[in-house]
């Protein structure tokens, strides 16, 4: 009786506490997303906006080979940058987790990470452009006479994307590896594993959730990147993000922008679901059956 009342009270309190955020996100995040879905099926208005007429024009426009090429390029750039980023970030996360000076290393990763992203992109422009640091330095040293084309190409985009997103990979990897029991590596060595074998057969399988989080948190934002290709890329490095923004600001084709956004949202959501289920199943594997029930699956 009493406990029943308490439970009811608890439910009410829980709702009271969570409702403001729930409503806020529903209203300012979910509703806009739904509007996008809706708009993608409507007709383009003359000066932006839409006309209330159902059509699949936006989706048909998406199949334009130009757009498809950009889509595939985006996929390729995102995949390549993610692979390089994770490959670089893994040893970093490991070294940080094992260091006596964890906080110092964290600060060293976080300081550039928190520095204004435009400043950082600007710094790369200052380094790579034809009158930039590298070219001027090489000229001063007499190595080259003419400036090298270091910027406004695919290579520059990938380099800067890696630069921008590597902290997103290092931090979750660090957090996961920090919880890893390093004695397992010793056990593996003791049982006859070489150093690489102990890393690949014991460390990597045990930090899977961290790797997946790192992949998601680099791949998705890179997939939707806008600023980097805009500022350091050339015509050949346009990405989906740029197309979407162009549709909004230049062509004023909101339905098409919405349709593209929807595609990215779906891709991201699938990625997130994959991540959640695999971390959840990992927890299930590591825990006794009785304790498994945790639908939360957050990425802490």
């Amino acid at each position: 009786m009493n406990s029943h009342m308490q439970e009811k009270r608890g439910r009410r309190l829980g709702i009271t506490y969570s409702a403001p955020m729930g409503l806020w996100l529903t209203f300012f995040f979910l509703v806009p997303l739904c509007i996008i879905i809706l708009y993608s099926f409507l007709k383009k208005g003359l000066y932006g906006g839409v006309e209330w007429e159902f059509t699949l024009t936006a989706y048909r426009q998406m199949l334009n080979p130009n757009f498809m090429r950009v889509f595939l390029r985006t996929l390729w750039v995102a995949a390549l940058s993610t692979v390089i980023t994770i490959t670089l970030a893994l040893p970093c996360g490991y070294a940080m987790a094992r260091s006596r000076h964890q906080v110092m290393w964290l600060a060293l990763v976080i300081i550039p990470f928190w520095t204004n992203s435009l400043i950082r992109i600007y710094a790369w422009i200052a380094i790579l452009s034809s009158e930039g640091f590298v070219n001027e330095a090489l000229k001063a040293l007499g190595v080259i006479g003419e400036s090298l084309p270091l910027i406004y190409n695919q290579g520059a985009v990938i380099t800067v994307l890696i630069y921008m997103y590597i902290p997103f990979a290092i931090l979750p990897l660090f957090t996961t590896i920090d919880k890893f029991d390093f004695q397992l590596l010793e056990a593996a060595r003791d049982l006859g594993a070489s150093k690489p074998e102990s890393i690949f057969k014991v460390l990597i399988p045990n930090i899977r959730s961290g790797i997946i989080t790192a992949v998601i948190f680099t791949f998705i934002p890179i997939f939707g990147a806008y600023t980097v290709p805009l500022l350091v890329g050339g015509k050949d490095s346009y990405m989906i993000g740029n197309i979407i923004v162009d549709q909004v600001t230049k062509t004023r084709n909101w339905p098409l922008a919405s349709a593209f956004s929807l595609v990215i949202t779906v891709v991201s959501t699938i990625g997130v679901i994959w991540m959640m289920t695999s971390t959840a199943s990992e927890r299930a594997r590591l825990k006794a059956p009785a304790q498994v029930v945790d639908a939360n699956g957050g990425i802490s």
């Binding site: 029991d181 004695q183 056990a187 070489s194 045990n206």
Partner: peptide, 17 residues
């Protein structure tokens, strides 16, 4: 890994995966 010696660890060090 090249020593004919094996260890039973205090905290077991079983591979959780």
């Amino acid at each position: 890994d090249k020593r004919q010696v094996n260890t039973v660890f205090q905290s077991y060090a079983l591979f959780p995966h």
